[in-house]
Amino acid sequence: MRDILIHLALLVVLPPFLPGLIQKTKSWFAGRQGPPLLQPYRDIWKLLRKGAVVSRTTTWLFRAGPVVGLATVMCAGLIVPFHCAKAPLGFEGDVIVFAYLLGLGRFFTMLAALDTGSSFEGMGSSREAAFSALAEPALFLALAIICIPAGSASFQDAWSMLPGAMRFAVHPEILAAAIAVFIVLLTENSRVPVDDPNTHLELTMVHEVMVLDHGGPDLAFIEAGSAVKFLVISSLLTHILLPIPPEGGWVGLAIFLGGTLGLTIAVGLLESLIARLRMVRVPQFLVAASVFGAVGLLVALVGGAR
């Protein structure tokens, strides 16, 4: 019962802190002071108290987009284990539900964007559709690598089967899974190599342009949603890289928090170091993720990980 409470607390409190940390890392790296760490909390709070401006051409879908987006991501948060191997809503096959929940959220976000009938939002959602279609196989291959040692498609079995020490010696293939998940993380959360979150030119945006027309509480839901999505996917990565003890407890929580923050800083550094890819090169970047996954699987099959 204690773990579930910790899990819910993490799910509600931690997410807005991560974009703040990324912003702080980028500004620190650029030599400027940058906005305070808790700025996203204030933004969300401000937006929740605002009114909304809605376009004439939209229908109820425009309003449902952000709501369903946040709901799916929260639900995914309940399925993915954070500080221990057991998630509040863990069952065999939750790996698949996790991936498809993200798909459902994306589906409604795209439709909400297209509801406004603006050509920019059409461009954003068409790119989002293309990139996510290519990211799905990569995510599933990575999940397959994780689940093969356990022999069943559930996070709990997968994480508890992974040995604590000498993890990469026994299962070298999960390194490939880590790379694939990292690429999926960057794509899903529209970080730099795939998409630049704080660009102002609509023609170059992917995720931002889809939420262009939302305001007030809708925008708050969207901001919170993207933050939670970042935490959820990064939790996958932390579980692969760091030996979080299956029974969790304070040690697990500490390792989890360290891993998550470290990962956020890494993403911030990555955004400061490299520029984004040309729009045409992104599909190859995603196919690379799938290739990593496939290679990892071959190693898993042949290497006797089963």
Partner: peptide, 13 residues
């Protein structure tokens, strides 16, 4: 949240 507040409709941006 939006019950009390003004929800205007305008042209798409």
């Amino acid at each position: 949240l939006l019950r009390g507040r003004s929800v205007e409709t305008g042209a798409t941006w």
